[in-house]
Amino acid sequence: MTDVTLYHWEPNANSGKPMLALFEKGVAFDSHYLDLLNFDQHRPDYLAVNPLGTIPAMTHGDKVLTESTAIMEYVNEAFDGPRLMPADPVDQWRARWWMKFLDQWLAPSFSMIGWSVFVGPSVRQKDPAELEAAIDRIPMPERRTAWRKAINGAFSPEEMTESQRRVGLGIGYLEAALVQREWLASGEYGLADINGFNLAYAMPLSQPQLCNDELTPNIMRWLRAIYARPATRACWALGRTDLARRISLLESEPA
């Protein structure tokens, strides 16, 4: 029994951030898996936990927490275990800068591509009336729009091009940062790396022409080093679909 429950989907994107932080910290938690493709996150029992209807959410005793990056900072501060934020205040600033940059600039571009090529097609064949009802249950208007676009394949060419532009640039920025430092924000592994890994672990597969041993050797070094950590293995073992299984490509040797 533990007093921590995490409501999550696959170890991937926002769900994977608190999952991996908990594993790195050595905090036992009750895993409550929600199937995003089955709209579990918009059902009343989950809306009682997070009225916004987004994943992840965490409870610790009677405390409820949302916002994956803020949850990670809480996990780091509230529990014993290895420190996942650097000690130096400038390095802490840099960790937060990168997490915001990933959360609000790079990740949405990956999401748009992912929803367009994976999430939309995965749910599209469901009964249209059932889908309409599912969309009506979504609390946030912005997300209703995103789901409609994903299901109807209605992301405009301009927005897709802009997302791809940002992905290309973002990969370059990550590589440049990892040329300068061993880890993303400082000389120590921490929350910025956990955040970045959840976004980037499948990049060599999804963006092979931009992210590979030749063009981005430092990203590849960094991804493999994170993959080698026992916490990462344990965390990804909670994945139930091929999405999480993409991580196995990091077993490859550097070219």
Partner: peptide
């Protein structure tokens, strides 16, 4: 307190976003 700090960071994230 970590939870109060989470509340502050989540609030600021809302303002920022």
């Amino acid at each position: 307190d970590p939870y109060a700090r989470w509340q502050m960071m989540a609030w600021c994230r809302y303002v920022i976003e």
